[in-house]
Amino acid sequence: MSCHEIRESLEGYIAGDLDDLEASRVAEHLATCPACAVAYEETRLLVGELKDLRNAFQPTCVFEEVPDVSAYARKREDAAGREGAAGLERHAAPGDGARGTRGGVPGRSWSRAWAVAAAVLLVALVGALAVATVPSLAQKLPLPVGSAIADLEHENQLMRAQNQAMRDRIDKLEARVNELTGDDVNVVPTSEDDVPDEVTMAVQQVVIEFITAQYAGDLERMKELATPALQARIDASPDEYLRDGAGTVSIAQMTDVSIYEGLYMTFVRMSDTKEFTDSQYQENFGVKKLGETYLVESMETDA
């Protein structure tokens, strides 16, 4: 290795990022090249100084005094009553992050005691923040108090369950759409409407078949998949609906199905091999259920 290459590797060598072979090559070179050995020492020194610079900043303690939380406590007082206070005391057990609570505690009245309890809790919950120093972080963190902790946990669990259910549902829809199109289609959730998955799948299927017919230039098939209203519009201006000059279509993204005034809506992003090669082409579909069959009622091109 040349001196130049060695210099390029020195930083990684000092950080211990090189593999054994590279590291031994550098080490061999350093043993025989005084100039690179000096460069190594100088770099190591500079890196060491930089790392040490962190310690030149000393956090200043921000919880030296009990924070003024009396207003906060009064609010809680109205809301929670006495059981809440018992809860607070339980959380503010001795030695539990009591750092920073030294200083005046002139509490006399019940509400003042409440304020102190709340302050102790605040410090307990953010115990580590007493030495950490981001000044108003502790006050900004939406810290749960008393029974709110349980509520919050419950809420979190519910939200996680909902998110998981949503993800599972989209995964399922995606697998199905991918099967239909042969493309790797990303299904995008749009709403929390209660459109059952069977309906979503049926709607997406008729839409995919319609798009396939558009690109195949198969007017008859398109009309089979359309409501009488759309059939009439296709007859009136077939060129607005035909895509047979655009090459092969590939569906990139499709929304799940939402319902609006009896019409099932889904938006499809796609690319083709001639005109729109960057997945920026979008068709918005409205689908109607006539009898037992889902049929395309409207198709608009999104600008």
Partner: peptide
Amino acid sequence: EEAHAFIG
């Protein structure tokens, strides 16, 4: 509030 003092 100043959060860190320089003590270097």
